[in-house]
């Protein structure tokens, strides 16, 4: 008798627990819909709107997706690439992006674009201090992906009854195609971290798992990946260069380290950085893009879209870019 009663209570509690958490799940879905950004403009509250401007580009018009952290949005110039080779590119980069977030933004991009090449800035592979920090960062990225409420909870400040269930309309795109333009010059006067050495700084294991997933997504969509290490005075080291070179060789991947480039494309740390070596300015980005563009041109087959009527807007954007670079605006 007593046993039956205990059993009954246990089953009842189990049902209650399941119903309670189903309620939590349902409410999470509901709030995720209510709080998701209704457009992708900077005012909408969307996460890193500049990086998500690809939504506003006409569908399937981006040839090259550039993914990475702030090094990427500071150090890559889609307009230079367009002007020189006629390739359309978009910099889907976010400050302090980890590889989990790189996967997220790549997947987002693939919902509206079908790039022919993905350029991944590998600096994000060393994001996070220690295993737990790296796991934590990547777990948050997974949660961002599957729980929009987790990412957009703060949009309650923009809540309105009028549009709470409206379908989002993502049609905003910045004229810079994701690049952070800056003409500021603040020289880097610190230590040179690129002194050749035999030492290695291996890619952290937690980030490697997500890098493999990144490759898998690219493979499923038949997109080749070009790994690049964009110039950074303070975060990239020769130890990372050694590890990355070995990794690329092992996996048979293309890898360019812009930190060891010499000649006309070499970075001048007294001129090409906007904030003392942390990030490149637009002059540094020109050099980087010149080098990467030449590499892509000789190693990949991407159609030159210059002169194509459907891409006329890129010429307009380039004209604005040219004026900015010449100091005309």
């Amino acid at each position: 008798m007593k046993e039956r009663k205990i059993k009954k209570i246990t089953i009842l509690r189990l049902i209650k627990t399941i119903v309670f958490f189903s309620g939590v799940a349902a409410l999470i879905c509901l709030f995720s819909i209510i709080l998701r950004p209704k457009d992708n403009s900077p005012k909408s509250g969307i996460l890193n709107p500049n990086a998500r401007g690809f939504y506003g580009e006409p569908e399937n018009t981006i040839d090259i997706a550039v993914i990475g952290n702030s090094d990427a949005y500071s150090g890559f110039s889609p307009m230079r690439l367009w002007n020189e080779y006629g390739y359309t590119s978009y910099v889907a980069a976010e400050g302090a992006q980890n590889i989990g977030e790189s996967v997220n933004i790549l997947k987002e991009m693939l919902t509206c674009q079908s790039p022919e090449l993905v350029v991944l800035d590998v600096d994000c592979l060393w994001a996070g201090e220690g295993l737990v920090d790296q796991l934590e960062g990547n777990m948050k990225s997974v949660m961002y992906n599957y729980l929009p409420l987790y990412r957009y909870h703060d949009r309650w400040k923009q809540f309105s009854f009028d549009n709470m269930f409206d379908e989002p309309e993502f049609n905003w795109s910045p004229r810079t195609k994701g690049q952070w333009l800056s003409r500021s010059v603040t020289p880097y006067e610190g230590e040179d971290l690129m002194t050749p050495s035999e030492e290695k700084f291996a890619i952290p294991k937690a980030n490697l798992i997500f890098l493999d997933y990144f490759f898998k997504v690219c493979e499923e969509n038949e997109i080749p990946v070009l790994l690049v290490a964009l110039p950074s005075g303070i975060s990239w080291t020769y130890e990372k260069h050694n590890s990355m070179t070995d990794f690329a060789k092992e996996r048979n991947l293309d890898f360019i380290d812009l930190n060891v480039v010499e000649g006309e494309y070499a970075i001048d740390w007294s001129q090409d950085t906007r904030d003392g070596g942390k990030h490149l300015n637009c002059y540094g980005a020109e050099k980087v893009t010149g080098y990467i563009g030449a590499y892509i041109h000789s190693n990949y087959t991407i159609e030159d879209k210059r002169g194509n009527e459907a891409y006329k807007d890129w010429d307009v954007c380039y004209e604005q870019y040219r004026k900015y670079m010449n100091g005309e605006k």
């Binding site: 309620g23 939590v24 409410l27 709030f31 409420l149 987790y150 990412r151 909870h153 703060d154 309650w156």
Partner: peptide, 22 residues
């Protein structure tokens, strides 16, 4: 009871100062 629990859970999830911008 459940209203209180849901209220607390979603107060943390929605009004918590975490994520981007914090």
């Amino acid at each position: 009871r459940w209203l209180v629990y849901y209220g607390l859970i979603f107060a943390v999830l929605i009004f918590g100062a975490y994520g981007s911008g914090y």
